[in-house]
Design a protein around this nucleic acid. Structure first.
Length: 923
RNA sequence: GCCUCCGUAGCUCAGGGGUAGAGCGCUCCCUUGGUAAGGGCGAGGUCAUGAGUUCAAAUCUCAUCGGAGGCUCCA
């Protein structure tokens, strides 16, 4: 063999060749089936990390496989390029967001090229370019014209740290999802998208092959519930208070009402005697952060307003309280409290000594349930009691109208005009205003009291480039007069759009990224849409993935797809349903986590006080190499906070404060050492710069080559789960690719070939094809590679034995390289070329699985006694039942066990697809 | 608290009513002109635990324990 596998010598070469020959250019071709594969577009943070590789290269392998199977594949890439980091960089380093962003994009694009992915770069879309955001603005206008975008006043999430409002989806546990800083609630005038109009349709996932957890998360997020609304009037005055309840069958048990502290009527109905108490409570609540308010198991608090309401169903006078356990953002912000049958109301009633009245008599209880006996609310099934004409109605566990009692009460409420059936959603309209500069402008004007859209001819409203980035916390647009001042009476909107708006439609922009008279080309859309395979992280479950579904449905209803539908019909494709969902199949990759790492084993000496020490000397030694008589603290360095080391000795964490002038000795690092160089224990956790466990893909490519990195990522993890990084395991795929190189270039054996051996290698090849196909189909890249490793071992054996003829050998190698091509595209291309086959391996047909060739001829008949395997007998694969049973009964194992007796039972299990036939003899 | 998913070799993972599998790692041997390498042999598993169904359970059912993710005063 002349030469070993040298990835660097071939990878860049082929990347250039592929680009020159436009190998991955995707063009509409109605004569071929289409396949639109897409991975979530990255934010141009500046550096590609291993997570990008993990998300993109397996998706690339699958797209390549589809292509070889005869599909016309579109696999585009772009950048979600608006967002805060660019603006922060502008403030911190006085570099314009555009320059920062574009420099990052150029760098990352180069890094991505090293993946050897089949991205069609001519379709690249970048959301922060005017040619892109012109159409984001245009879509906003379309939404506005169709009543799907509106300006409204709402209690919004305000992030102090970012000086902007956030969507509900961007707030987690009362904290800003990105910065982790608490958010406060503020009433503000903002722009919204009417996503709630689509709530019901978004709950249907018909025909969508999406992961169950995502569907569940979206369903939970939308939070549909069925019930009724009823109107209560205040006992004095004319104020009506609407409540929403899922349990209208318990209306007669309402013994008080509770309003959210922020409810608009609170101020109006509060009596003068109670005003001070109410205001004090509201101030207290306002001072609490959202986080505190959401703490679990907190005591219920509230205060009486002094006002009373009349329960419409029984004209009872009940007190109106306010309490923070009622959320102004859910339902109507007001509830009827039924302490007997709602746990929260029960706790509140007990805390403030409010009456509790049973209105559902538990089914399995003979004695009437009394409030005094209750230790918790009863929410089970039973018959309505104390409810006038409704008494006796059965309330079962069903929700909404399906529950007989609820059904009857709703009918009655509607007949008497006291209330009506109502469906409620947890989902709110999508708040899309952001008080930031680096986002898509909202193309609206304020003229006097009028709100006007910017005319289409003036789109895009471009972001001014000559703004000052000063850390005032305000968007530079708000004091850039040439931008916001249109004329004396007209001011331009200075808020910008949530970047999720830009990423809600990028799958359309890829179709024709530079088109300037429409957001996308209808002919392209007719062919490519919808996206067939979408891959990305599950963290976007209720944000991007819900938004883009909404966006798509809105576009469909506005008629944006009409032209594309017509083009479909012209080409003989039925557009029915084609635009209902943007992505028909979704898969989430897991996360590559930082690997676990042992901390340094240290010996610390100094002044010791139990588990504490002020150390004058810290030495790193081999694991457990503690000198005899050492009386300091020793063990693994598990953590360090500034100058204090946490050292685990005998299972107990000891705290070692290192004196500023202490001597630190680290044998592996020459010269004078300092405390920062000590290596601390790392748990398996997310990679992050601050933890020092980040893996740099450029470095890996340099050391191992892109194909090895690709294969390592696909092989060493369950793609949909992810897992901890363990670089030792990279040797597996590396050795595999080196072996493939050697085997492929070893040349055909110089022999006539043995028929049985050739049959055997063909069988193994086709068994391998079946597994690789199934692996790629199911995103089980690891199994697809493991199977090829196995096949490689078979090839290696065959090469050693020299019993395969030249012709068969070439065919087998040819197929093996095609199987390899999606995974290690450079290596496969190089081998294909060196063996003299025509460019390119990536345009070859995928090896076709042949069940007949994969079939075993001889199998082992397993003789089992009482279900335990005892003996095997070689038999033909197509053995008949009678013969198998006869052979089994005659076997030594059976004879021994039966000892002359007749078997109690004989069970024959035929072999099917690869498994051996079995006979179980029960004695 | 509720909902999903998952517990198989030291590690990462396949499989899945009918003989327990792969890669890496590990042991030992060989090679020392592919050398931060190559070749060969081998060891390693009560398939989390307990019960049930079955001729037969790692596989199906139920319970328990453990892990991951999501939701959570949602009226």
């Amino acid at each position: 063999m002349s030469k070993t596998y040298q990835p660097h010598e071939i990878e860049v070469k082929w990347q250039r060749k592929w680009e020159e020959s436009q190998l991955y250019r995707a063009r509409v071709d109605w004569s071929k089936p289409k396949h639109y594969a897409m991975t979530m577009l990255p934010y141009p943070s500046g550096e590609l990390h291993i997570g990008h590789w993990f998300a993109m290269t397996p998706s690339d392998a699958r797209a390549r496989w589809m292509r070889m199977r005869g599909y016309n594949v579109l696999f585009p890439m772009g950048f979600d390029a608006f967002g805060l980091p660019a603006e922060n960089a502008a403030i911190a380093r006085n570099i314009h967001p555009w320059k920062w962003t574009y420099a990052n994009i150029e760098h990352m694009r180069e890094q991505m090229r090293s993946m050897g992915a089949m991205f069609d770069w001519q379709r690249e879309a970048i959301s922060c370019t005017p040619e892109y955001y012109k159409w984001s603005e245009w879509f906003f206008k379309k939404f506005y014209e169709h009543g799907l975008a509106y300006r409204g006043s709402a209690l919004v999430n305000w992030s102090e740290s970012m000086q902007t409002v956030l969507a509900n989806e961007q707030v987690i546990d009362g904290k800003d999802e990105r910065t982790g800083q608490p958010v406060v609630h503020k009433m503000m005038e903002q722009w919204f998208f009417a996503i709630t109009k689509y709530a019901d349709e978004l709950l249907s996932f018909a025909g969508m092959d999406w992961p169950n957890p995502i569907k569940i998360m979206q369903t939970n997020w939308i939070g549909r519930s069925e019930g009724a609304r009823a109107t209560f009037y205040t006992a004095v005055g004319e104020h009506s208070i609407e409540i929403y309840t899922t349990r209208p069958d318990t209306l007669w048990g309402a013994t008080f009402m509770v309003l959210a502290p922020e409810h608009e009527l609170v101020d109006i109905i509060t009596t003068s005697e109670q005003r001070a108490a109410v205001e004090h409570y509201i101030d207290e609540i306002a001072a609490e952060t959202e986080v505190e308010r959401m703490m679990e198991h907190r005591e219920k608090t509230g205060v009486f307003t002094g006002a009373y309401a009349i329960n419409p169903v029984n004209d009872e006078r009940i007190p109106i309280w306010i309490a923070d356990y009622v959320m102004v953002t859910y339902g109507t912000g007001a509830i009827m409290a039924v302490p007997a049958h709602d746990q929260r109301d029960f706790e509140f009633a007990r805390a403030y000594d409010l009456p509790i009245r049973v209105v559902i008599q538990p089914e399995d209880m003979d004695e009437p349930l009394t409030s005094a006996a209750m230790r918790e609310a009863y929410s089970g099934t039973g018959a309505m009691v104390n409810s006038d004409a409704m008494d006796g109605s059965l309330s079962d566990s069903a929700k909404g109208r399906a529950n007989p009692a609820i059904n009857r009460v709703i009918d009655w409420l509607e007949a008497t005009g006291k209330g009506q059936e109502s469906v409620n959603y947890r989902l709110h309209d999508w708040l899309i205003s952001r008080q930031r500069y680096w986002g898509c402008p909202i193309p609206m004007l304020y003229s006097g009291d009028d709100i006007l859209p910017v005319p289409d001819a003036e789109l895009p409203v471009e972001l001014p480039s000559d703004v000052d980035f000063v850390p005032t916390g305000r968007s530079p647009l708000t004091y850039h007069e040439p931008f916001f001042k249109v004329d004396e009476n007209t001011r331009r909107e200075t808020d910008t759009l949530d970047t999720f708006m830009c990423s809600s439609w990028y799958q359309l922009r890829y179709l024709s990224p530079h088109k300037d008279d429409a957001p996308f080309d209808a002919e392209e859309a007719a062919y490519w849409l919808p996206v067939d395979v979408y891959t990305g992280g599950a963290e976007h479950a209720v944000m991007h993935l819900l938004y883009t579904r909404f966006f798509n449905k809105a576009l469909r209803d506005i008629g944006i797809y009409d032209e594309a539908a017509a083009a479909m019909r012209r080409n003989g494709r039925d557009p029915a349903g084609a635009f209902d969902e943007p992505m028909t199949l979704l898969r989430n990759q897991g996360q590559v986590l930082g690997g676990e790492r042992q901390g340094d084993f240290v010996l610390c000496s100094g002044r010791r006080d139990g588990e504490h020490m002020l150390a004058q000397r810290v030495e790193v030694v081999d694991w457990n190499a503690v000198p005899d008589g050492f009386d300091g603290i020793f063990g693994e360095l598990v953590n360090r906070v500034e100058a204090t080391l946490q050292v685990e000795m005998a299972g107990i964490i000891h705290f070692v404060e290192v004196a500023p002038d202490a001597e630190i000795i680290i044998p592996d690092i020459p010269g004078a050492n300092n405390i920062n160089q000590l290596r601390q224990h790392l748990e398996i956790q997310r990679m992050s710069k601050s933890k020092g466990n980040v893996v740099n893909p450029d470095e890996l490519v340099r050391r191992f080559g892109a194909d090895v990195v690709r294969c390592y990522l696909m092989f060493n993890f369950d793609w949909q789960k992810g897992g901890p990084w363990n670089e030792n395991n990279i040797k597996g795929p590396q050795g595999w690719l080196h072996d493939i190189w050697d085997i492929a270039l070893a040349g055909a054996p110089d022999c006539a070939g043995d028929a049985a051996a050739e049959r055997d290698i063909a069988r193994k090849l086709h068994q391998c094809i079946a597994v690789v196909d199934r692996g790629l189909e199911n995103f089980s890249f690891n199994t697809a590679i493991a199977e090829q490793m196995k096949f490689k071992n078979a090839l290696k054996d065959a090469l050693r034995q020299q019993h395969i003829g030249a012709e068969t050998w070439r065919e087998v190698i040819n197929a093996a390289i095609r199987l390899l091509a999606p995974f290690a595209p450079h290596l496969a291309e190089e081998l294909w070329s060196q063996l003299g086959w025509e460019y390119s391996v990536h345009t070859q047909a995928w090896p076709q699985y042949d069940a007949e060739l994969a079939r075993e001829d001889v199998v082992d008949l397993v003789v089992m006694i009482n279900g335990k395997p005892r003996q095997t007998i070689h038999v033909a694969v197509d053995i008949e039942r009678a013969q198998a049973e006869q052979l089994a009964l005659a076997s030594a194992a059976a004879q021994r066990s039966l000892a002359g007796n007749a078997p109690r039972r004989v069970v024959y299990i035929p072999g099917r697809n690869g498994t051996d036939p079995k006979v179980n003899i029960v004695v």
